[in-house]
Design a binder for these strands. Sequence first.
DNA 1: ATTGAAAGAGTCTCAGT
DNA 2: ACTGAGACTCTTTCAAT
Lengths: 162, 162
Amino acid sequence: MEPKNNAKLNAVKSLDKLDLQIIQHMMLDAEISYADLGKQLFVSGGTIHVRIKKLEDLGIVQGKRLAVDMKVLGYDVIAFIGVYLEKSSMYDSVALALKNIPQIVRLNYTTGNYSMFAEIVCKDIQQLRYVLHDELQKIKGIERTETFISLEESFSRNVRIV
Amino acid sequence: MEPKNNAKLNAVKSLDKLDLQIIQHMMLDAEISYADLGKQLFVSGGTIHVRIKKLEDLGIVQGKRLAVDMKVLGYDVIAFIGVYLEKSSMYDSVALALKNIPQIVRLNYTTGNYSMFAEIVCKDIQQLRYVLHDELQKIKGIERTETFISLEESFSRNVRIV
DNA sequence: ATTGAAAGAGTCTCAGT
DNA sequence: ACTGAGACTCTTTCAAT
């Protein structure tokens, strides 16, 4: 486990209302111009620029990501996988092995029934079956897995701040 | 369940190598300029512009999202919730109720043990406890829930295309 | 710290191929 | 369908406050 970044944590306390408003607005519309955002928040575009640069330097704003409809590209099978480990000390090696499977897009170490929780995106059920049966079961340290295939995503959004 | 968008699905078949390369490159670096991307892919910036506009019109590229380090902002408790429903026909009303809880950021209807799978982001364990105990248990149709608190996120990434 | 304006860089459009 | 150049818009810098 990485230690907490105290520089960041101290910096976040110094964020004022304007900083949080900028984050809030840009989480809803990342492509708004500095001038327009400045108008909405009653400051100049230059001020928006300075604040965003500060937030980027602090690592709070980490840039922009392209939003792609993976379903339309043919990647329409999403599943969640609960992983039981033989020993929890095997977490690191299993995590590394899972990272080498490109279809595994997310992995969390969790409390509760499962030791780890993974998310997988595949082109079709055949590919999912292959990864689950042929790739996952070969990994040393995995006792067994439980798979939950998503039939529908109701929603997916950012948490609301302020 | 929404029907599949056949216009999109037909359109995706017409995507050529260049379209997929643009998506691939911009998934890794959403902020690259059209001119620079054009140089890498041996076409003009104008061509990149036309292709991206096409991908946006088709709904395949849905814009850009701001990447924010929610941990630094104090939202550092992530948990996954498996939901058992009394009757699966109650899916829609429960989904609506969960959508009204701002801390619930994602909801999927799944096969397997649970009827639904939710993800929640909170400021601290007290807030998580409040949402789980006071808000979730009040929702009509939820039989019980199982919570998996994330102790660490190993990785989170896009699926690799082409 | 914020502003407003100028310089620099990127997006968008279009006539020509 | 792609190119290159011009028009337009946005980002970035900076002197003044």
